[in-house]
Every structure is written in structure tokens, then in C-alpha cells.
Simulated scan of single mutants.
Amino acid sequence: MSTQPTEVSPADLPLSTPLQAEVHCPRGVYSWWLDTARSPTPEAAGLGPLPGVPRLVHSSGRAELLYVGRARRDLHGRIAGQHLRRTRSSALRRTLLAVLLPGDPSWREGASLDGRDRVVLDGEREQRLTAWMQEHLLLGWARCETKDDVDALEQRWIAAHQPVLNTESTGHGPELTELKRVYREGLPRRF
């Protein structure tokens, strides 16, 4: 989707399932949504208690905004290479694990910490989390022309909508940070 960053609202973006997304643009801002047609509430999807902030409803009426992120160089690589594969390099995946844990302690199995204190999952658990994302989440994105446009649009969307799984630049960030700390507590170290 080619659009000017000042004109686009995340609620108006076309949505697709993550693995079917055909994201072929160099940079942009993306949004992850709970597919309420499949899971009408976060709890139905297995997500534990989320911060009590209003969630933006997509214009289709079938999704609620969970997370906003940016890709300054390669939108496809950011989504397919990190958010759908590697927990170590995806803040979204690490936050998802922290909010999935209260409802199902098995989300800690196969998890360890790397040298920078980031969560790492073994291959089987990475696949499990990706399958969960495919089943419960939808993805939208807006193309941006410059890195400055990317940064500005991401900041506007986060400030305006306070996505429930974003930690930085949100009023509920400390609550998510605590959930992530609890998740990491006691995990073995992998160097």
C-alpha cells in the first residue's frame, strides 16, 4: 500500500494473516491485530491480563489493535525474518510470551536467556509461537518513503492509539516490562 504517512490510519489498512502477507516494500510501519472473528477476546486467544487501555477497532470490525512497529530498511525482512521466526530479535514475540504465560505455563518450556538477557526459544517453541500468531493475529502495514517518515508515523500511531502490547512510548509500558521480567525470571542462560 503506497500512501503518505500523514494520511493513513491503522484502522483503515488492509489486513491479512501473517504468513499470507505479501509485504514487498523497502520501509514502512506495520500493525498487529487480534483477529476477533477467530478469538472474540484476548482471553479467548490465550492472552493473560492485558493493560487496561482501550483498543482501536479496525474499520472492518473484525480486529483490535495490539502492536505497532517500524521497519526502516526492509519491511518484509522485519516481519518474516524477525516477528515470524526469532524471538530474540522481536519485542512483539517477547511481549506475547509474557502475556501468554499466565494462561499457560508451558510457554516457558524451551526458553532461555542469551548474553544480552533476551529470551531465546528452541526451534520447536519458535514454531509453536509462529503458529499461534498465524491463528490469532492479523497484519496491516503502510509504506513510507523515507526513514524519517517511518519514525514519524510509528510515533504518531503509538501516541494516538497506545497499542496494548507496545512497551515504549506508552503509559502502560511499565506494566508490560514487569510481565516480561516475570517471564524471564529463573530462565537458564545460553551463551
Rank of each mutant, 00 (worst) to 15 (best):
R86Q: 09
R88M: 08
R88W: 02
S90T: 08
S90H: 03
S90L: 06
S90I: 05
S90Y: 04
A91S: 08
A91H: 00
A91M: 07
L92V: 13
L92I: 11
L92C: 13
R93N: 05
R93L: 03
R93H: 04
R94C: 10
R94I: 03
R94T: 15
T95M: 12
T95Q: 15
L96Y: 07
L96I: 07
L96H: 09
L97G: 12
A98M: 12
A98Y: 15
V99N: 12
L100S: 04
L101V: 06
L101R: 12
L101G: 04
P102V: 14
G103C: 12
G103D: 12
G103F: 01
G103I: 10
G103M: 12
P105G: 08
P105N: 04
P105H: 13
S106Q: 09
S106H: 11
W107P: 03
W107V: 09
W107G: 02
R108Y: 11
E109F: 09
G110N: 03
A111P: 06
S112G: 11
L113C: 13
L113E: 10
D114T: 02
D114G: 11
G115H: 06
G115A: 12
G115W: 09
G115E: 14
G115T: 11
R116P: 00
R116A: 11
R116G: 00
D117Y: 11
R118M: 01
R118E: 15
V119L: 10
V119M: 10
V120E: 10
V120P: 01
V120S: 07
V120M: 15
L121N: 01
L121H: 03
E124F: 03
E124Y: 06
R125W: 02
R125M: 07
E126G: 00
E126T: 05
E126Q: 09
Q127W: 01
R128D: 02
L129M: 10
L129Y: 04
L129Q: 01
A131C: 03
W132M: 02
W132E: 01
W132T: 03
M133D: 00
M133G: 04
M133Y: 00
M133F: 01
Q134A: 08
Q134I: 00
Q134V: 02
H136R: 14
H136Q: 00
L137G: 13
